[in-house]
Amino acid sequence: MPTLSDALGVGDDSVLVAVGAGGKKSLLYSLADELPDAVVTATVKMPKFGGKVERTVLTDDPVSAAREAEERPLGLARDGDRSDRYLGYDPDVVDDLAEAGATPLLVKGDGARTRLLKAPKEGEPPVPSAATVVVPLASVRVVGQPLTEEAVHRPKRVAELTDLAAGNEIRPKHVADVLAHPDGGLKNVPEDADAVPVVNMADTEETVETAREVAERVLERAPSVPRVLVTRLIHDDPVVDVVERD
């Protein structure tokens, strides 16, 4: 299998934005391990970087901080109002970082409150226009669960994008419907960016097959999507499969 960065098409000049649910932070930190010059930041609130980056700088001037800090991977954020979280930057500030050459730039562009699936509300997700790769995520573990707030962030929005009613069982087609929908996983993807969905947490034979089914259905629904990754992002070999068009 290819590396995660190769499978996503992320290189030295890339700006990747992770949205959706079910592994955004794991994705960003896996990429930071592969891309030692990476800068990690967010357009939303995010948990503290911990030991996942070489240096953390809390600043309202991330462009200057990126120019001055030599350590990489570098974490950039603003100080928050909670001890366990940072604040992100407006998308145009992230655009400034990209223009200043602070790449590869890895951006958390959505919040999902640790749920396994999400559909964005109005105004979400805040994707910077400089994005070159947007990665909508979902966890395969949501398949078989009921459409409730325990498993899904914004279940009412998911219901609007699918034929599901509250409490109904989520099937692979429903996950694909969300990932492939222009008001779901593909919302706010810049015209020049690649959208590469990821179906994560596929760590058993059964979940791998289910994730492949989701991936194939996404490709059927979304002609603009070049491929879908099946992953287990907390493992040393995170890419399980790359499902491409025939």
Rank of each mutant, 00 (worst) to 15 (best):
R232A: 15
D12L: 13
L76A: 01
P146N: 14
E99R: 15
V243G: 10
G123K: 06
T3D: 10
G144A: 07
K187R: 15
L76F: 01
H174Y: 03
P91D: 00
P104Y: 02
D92G: 00
V189W: 00
R55M: 04
S129I: 01
K45H: 09
V143Q: 04
H235V: 05
S26G: 03
L161P: 12
S129D: 12
G20D: 02
T204F: 10
P2C: 11
A195H: 11
E216H: 09
G50R: 02
P125S: 01
A138T: 10
V189H: 02
P155M: 08
P238D: 12
V228S: 12
A112E: 04
A151E: 03
T41L: 00
A102P: 05
P223A: 10
P104K: 11
A215V: 13
N188P: 11
A69V: 15
M1R: 11
G22Y: 03
P226S: 14
E216V: 03
E70W: 01
K45M: 03
Q145L: 15
V240P: 08
A77D: 00
L233P: 08
D61F: 02
H181G: 09
L31M: 12
L31E: 04
G111F: 01
P120S: 02
P136E: 07
A222N: 13
D163F: 04
V189D: 04
T103Y: 03
V44E: 01
L179E: 05
E191C: 09
E209H: 03
D79E: 14
R171S: 13
V175H: 08
E68P: 00
S14I: 04
T231E: 11
G50L: 01
D92A: 04
P182L: 12
D237P: 08
T210I: 15
G80V: 05
V199Y: 07
D12Q: 14
K108A: 00
K156D: 14
V107C: 03
A130R: 03
R72S: 07
K24N: 02
A193P: 09
G9N: 01
G75L: 03
A65W: 05
K108I: 00
A119L: 08
R232Q: 14
A176N: 14
D95G: 02
N168S: 15
P62G: 04
T210C: 05
A151N: 05
T162M: 12
A18W: 00
L229F: 13
D81I: 04
D33T: 06
A7G: 10
K173H: 11
A32P: 01
S14K: 10
M201A: 13
P190T: 13
L137I: 04
R212L: 11
E213T: 15
H153P: 06
G51L: 01
P120A: 03
S14C: 12
V134Q: 02
A193C: 12
D60S: 11
A193V: 06
A38P: 05
V107N: 00
A42Y: 00
E160I: 08
V208I: 15
